[in-house]
Design a binder for these strands. Structure first.
Lengths: 166, 166
DNA sequence: GCTCACTGCTTCGAATTCGAAGCACAATGA
DNA sequence: TCATTGTGCTTCGAATTCGAAGCAGTGAGC
């Protein structure tokens, strides 16, 4: 099925540049977040996701999906946020298994504190060297890739306990 | 200096898409590497960098720069690769402080084993939904961003032991 | 109502990660 | 030459990460 020829230089370049740019961006952002609000990148993503949500709440599972993260890691980080008073955890009414996480006022406050610096880093590193058209093009291409990725079943789609080939 | 206005939706979208795409890509690639060759992503990057180098050797520092990684983490991972027999470590002749890492034949073999699957994942996730022009555009924009990032002094550029403001 | 498979989350241990501190060599300059 | 500063790497401890296993609660089928 899949094509064994090597990638051409432009494809390789796109790939390497993507990895390097996102790594560097993430590193810098992480540092800014730590300095200005004592947050890790994941914690910021979680708070931001919650801040966007209708009433500031989401189920653990939905959070994990939005953040590309392992379940256990999520439990850990949400635990830290809870300790810090930035979120609240409570079992769902509808489904006794689910846990609903809610952002607190303190959480929103931290978010507000951290945001300006966050945006400044984005501008400085990512946006400054690009024209509006560039940004548009980048968004357009990556949107398409993202949609494609989401539509593909994850590699280990095998359910938890399932007779293999039987 | 920096502009306090919020980002417009397209800019935000470009940013979020960049993060999500690179995270998902990295996750999937990592998994493929682990299955097919028992390598972590960093280990693969290191081997690939060495494989590209003139005579398969590089100093630790140069490796770290190419990979966006902490020094101590590099020491750890190179240690693992050495244990596995995929690289060799030896002090540099010219500078007694430096350590020169060299890829072994076994290392090249693993690289060769892993590569086809690696490329297949790239195609499947990243390249398939894109036209040649899209890839070209992506590479062009990200190249520019990468060059810009490299030209900016790292945030904590302060030398190791330095009187602060004095 | 019961049973059985599934889902949502947490706990556990092992592996990886980072930054700070330490060690040895190098280079500068008095 | 010798002190002083700087550079390259490693070691150390603490924090984070993941996957596997475990524990309820749900829901489908009988």
């Amino acid at each position: 099925m899949s094509d064994d020829r090597p990638l051409d230089p432009v494809q390789l370049d796109a790939y390497f540049a993507l990895i390097e740019v996102s790594s560097l961006l993430r590193h810098t952002v992480e540092q800014q977040l730590k300095e200005s609000g004592g947050l890790s990148y994941v914690q910021f993503q979680l708070l931001a996701t919650l801040g966007d949500a209708p009433s500031g709440r989401r189920r653990m599972t939905d959070l994990a999906d939005g953040v590309v993260y392992s379940r256990s890691g999520l439990t850990y980080q949400v635990g830290l946020l809870e300790q810090a008073g930035l979120v609240t955890r409570a079992p769902s009414q509808e489904d006794e298994r689910s846990v609903v996480v809610t952002i607190t006022d303190a959480g929103r406050a931290v978010l507000a504190t951290v945001f300006p610096g966050h945006i400044a880093v984005l501008r400085e590193l990512l946006l400054d060297p690009l024209s509006d058209d560039d940004v548009e093009a980048l968004a357009s291409v990556l949107d398409r890739v993202r949609a494609h990725m989401r539509s593909i079943p994850p590699r280990s789609a095998a359910p938890r306990r399932r007779a293999p080939t039987r």
